[in-house]
């Protein structure tokens, strides 16, 4: 049950962080807001590292690791944040959540399919249903907009 609760909370913190950061971006600039976000992130994750591990395990020199590309996640994260800062004030929070999820889920399914040659049926059908829900409600919105115009 504990893990169920923290899973749900992690969804809530994603939404809160996205909105708070886009508000900061509106005030001081998109990339400047992203910069502040990463400063806070480095400090917080450093504190967690000290509390929970009290040692840093570097298997040798990171620069000698041949798969340097595994370090690029942080860069991709910055791109995501700059896009999120731009788009958050421009659309409903629910639709943003759903579209990001759909993009993420189906890319994940493609990656799994091509790297491990397996397709999760549950995630595929579930994703289609989430997309159908998004599409249905978008049409309701569109009709309402047309009716008021």
């Amino acid at each position: 049950m504990f893990y169920v609760i923290i899973s749900i909370i992690s969804g809530v913190t994603i939404v809160l962080a996205r909105i708070i950061n886009s508000n900061l971006g509106k005030k001081i600039g998109n990339m400047q807001g992203t910069f502040i976000n990463y400063i806070t992130g480095v400090v917080t994750s450093g504190i967690f590292l000290i509390i929970f591990r009290n040692q840093i395990n570097f298997p040798g020199n990171p620069l000698q690791i041949t798969q340097l590309w595994i370090f690029f996640g942080g860069f991709v994260g910055v791109l995501c944040m700059v896009i999120a800062n731009y788009i958050t004030p421009r659309m409903s929070s629910l639709y943003l959540t759903l579209l990001v999820f759909i993009g993420q889920l189906f890319t994940g399914l493609l990656v799994d399919y091509f790297t491990m040659h397996e397709l999760s049926v549950g995630k595929f059908i579930g994703g289609l249903l989430v997309f159908a829900g998004f599409a249905y409600n978008s049409i309701v919105d569109k009709k309402k907009k047309e009716a008021t115009e």
Binding site: I83, G103, Q104
Partner: peptide
């Protein structure tokens, strides 16, 4: 906007893999 939202989902998926 919808395209950018889905694009950031695609990027997120790549980020999570990395």
């Amino acid at each position: 906007n919808n395209f950018l939202a889905a694009l950031s989902g695609i990027l997120l998926s790549i980020m999570i893999t990395l």
